[in-house]
């Protein structure tokens, strides 16, 4: 099968959906023909679909999201790009109070079919304002859906589903994933929300991880295999809705679970998943749940500091050994 990058996979999804449905359009800072997206995800789209449907905006995150909402409730299907995940904070009212709540507040009179694409993640030394991951914040907002694609295959299939969904979608990417090249079918496919994927089958311990951490979990699993530990890696693919059954089934099988996420530990993604497992599958656990995450710090600049806070294969392996022994 052919291989394309994560950024190319996203680009294909946008291209195909814009071709399929003229209501789909893109807006964001530098998404147009001159810059083509900070991570080149919108490359070539303005040339094909024109400046009207691939809109460069001013640096106005709140209005980018607000404009997307206004367009969505009047019949369009916008895809808004926020250049860095951290900058969604500038649009938090529009995301949390408007996009997520309008349908509910207005008694179901409207729907808000829009996608907010933005990259999270540390690892490229761009410091505390452009590196944080706070997927968990959006998991806490009823009305939103939270999508976390870990591979080019997922990036394309989930983005196409997101664009066709009638709800506001936080489509969270990861900076280090954009250049990753993997197999993606040429034929059209969609990936449903709320369906986890088992990235590696195993019987001794379950690692639940998302986004770039899936790749670190897989690398750690290979090292652990040499020690005779058979790891299962489960990728929820969407955090809201969350495929509880898949997570619990894996825990039932292995009896041990490590949750790896690239966010601060306190009240993070791992906290929610751990609570869920404790509530619904405690009797199947043979060891305490361990969370591997970032410490509760902002992301530092200097590579030696940054690498210290990001979960790596060694920390994941140590956590797995701890629950196994």
């Amino acid at each position: 099968m052919r291989q394309i990058t994560y950024a190319e996979a996203l680009n294909e999804a946008l291209h195909e959906e814009m071709e399929r449905d003229e209501k789909v359009f893109i807006l964001g800072e530098d998404v147009g023909r001159f810059w083509q997206g900070a991570f080149k995800v919108t490359k070539g789209l303005a040339e094909v679909f024109g400046n009207e449907r691939v809109r460069d905006t001013p640096i106005s995150e709140s209005a980018i999201i607000g404009v997307a909402i206004g367009a969505a409730i009047t019949g369009m299907r916008p895809v808004a790009e926020i250049m860095f995940g951290d900058l969604t904070t500038l649009a938090m009212d529009q995301i949390v109070n408007q996009a997520a709540k309008l349908r509910y507040m207005f008694g179901g009179q409207t729907k808000v079919p829009m996608v907010v694409r933005t990259p999270f993640g540390a690892g490229v030394s761009i410091a505390a304002h452009l590196s944080q991951s706070f997927e968990a914040w959006f998991m806490h907002v009823p009305g939103l859906k939270v999508v976390v694609p870990s591979t080019p295959y997922e990036a394309k299939g989930l983005l196409k589903t997101a664009i066709r969904d009638d709800n506001p979608i936080m489509f969270l990417e990861h900076k280090l994933l954009y250049p990753i090249k993997k197999e993606v079918p040429k034929e059209e496919y969609l990936i449903p929300f709320g369906k986890a994927d088992i990235k590696r089958e195993g019987k001794d311990v379950t690692i639940i991880s998302t986004l770039f951490m899936v790749h670190k979990a897989l690398a750690a699993s290979e090292i652990l295999a040499n020690d005779g530990i058979d790891v299962e890696v489960v990728d929820p693919r969407t955090l809201l809705p969350l495929d509880k059954n898949a997570l619990i089934n894996s825990v039932k099988k292995t009896g041990r679970v490590v949750i790896v996420s690239e966010d601060c530990k306190t009240a993070g993604v791992g906290a929610e998943i751990a609570a869920l497992i404790a509530e619904e599958a405690l009797d199947y656990l043979d060891a305490p749940i361990i969370r591997v995450s970032e410490p509760d710090t902002p992301i530092p600049f200097s590579p030696i500091l940054e690498q210290f806070v990001i979960p790596d294969e060694r920390r994941i392996s140590n956590a797995v050994k701890k629950v196994v022994h």
């Binding site: 404009v67 997307a68 369009m76 529009q94 109070n97």
Partner: peptide, 29 residues
């Protein structure tokens, strides 16, 4: 929504970008 009343919001100033978005939608449609 049947009479074009797109709703009232209580966060002061929150509807200005939303109104611009409805305007963009009109232009695109």
């Amino acid at each position: 929504f049947d009479v074009g009343m797109l709703g009232a919001t209580a966060v002061v100033g929150s509807a200005l970008p939303i109104a611009s978005g409805a305007g963009l939608s009109i232009k695109l449609r």
